[in-house]
Design a protein around this nucleic acid. Structure first.
Lengths: 140, 140
DNA sequence: GTTCCTGCAAAAGCTTTGCAGAAGA
DNA sequence: TCTTCTGCAAAGCTTTTGCAGGAAC
């Protein structure tokens, strides 16, 4: 059994989140598919092996996991939300041509927001937009 | 007449964007209301003095202005898009309690994305989430 | 006259809500 | 038993699309 998945289960227990079968499946999926999936992709893929799963449960689970800080909500898209296992210190690049989302390393923790004295900062996100190398070369 | 607004009009001309009455009104609104308004707020406010304005035109205009780089698209919310006159080098903080969006200074230009060799970067956004001072003090 | 823009209505797509039944402690 | 979770259906909201009329040049 995957050790890091066991760690995630342990983390759920510590946060007093019930480990239902569906929730574990969603968490396992996010752990295995670190490609910033949409709700629809998570649902469609999991539905293949778990035909009774409903989209409502996926939404519900993702909200619980996001509120607990275990998954990161990615709103780089303007029309749909993506989710990712929470890993610190990386940004997201969206190709405006093909829509693909790429991770990149960036020192987010060192970002200081001037003028935020007295604010409680819970999460930081860095989003870049542009054109990826694939689409750049296809234009030629 | 506001000088900076005249500059904006000049910028539109240079980008070959027709200066229709509605487009100028939307641009003027964004110039005077730097509060990251939603489409609905822009439409509702402008509709008061321009009763024939349609929401479709607001959407259409914002798309044109965003594609030209004159306005910045803010997707810090997961359910609606906000728009801002494009000003460099500032981030956006969203209070998860009251929903208010605050600007803050941050040196975005100095952010280097490691692993983005060969990518064409067109825009950079920094989003923080947390609780604002007002909501923090109200909790006591 | 041709092109582009506007605005109404309808449709589309993502997300939330209500509620009844099931699962778990 | 009591609480929580699941899943279906319906509703809600933002955004997009189709199309006819109008404005601008």
């Amino acid at each position: 059994m995957n050790t890091s998945f066991e760690n995630l289960k342990q983390e759920l227990k510590e946060k007093n989140i019930n480990l239902s079968y569906q929730r574990l499946k969603v968490l396992e999926y996010l752990n295995n598919n670190r490609c910033h999936p949409t709700v629809d992709k998570i649902y469609t893929d999991l539905h293949k092996e778990l035909s009774t799963l409903s989209k409502t449960t996926v939404y519900n689970t993702l909200r619980v996991l996001a509120e607990s800080g275990m998954v990161r909500v990615i709103t780089i898209e303007d029309n749909e939300t993506r989710y990712d296992i929470n890993v610190e210190n990386h940004g997201h690049f969206k190709c405006d041509s093909c829509g693909e989302i790429y991770d990149f390393s960036v020192n987010i923790d060192s970002l200081i927001g001037e003028g935020l004295d007295g604010f409680m900062i819970n999460s930081k996100n860095v989003y870049f937009n542009g054109i990826c190398p694939n689409c750049l070369s296809n234009k030629n």
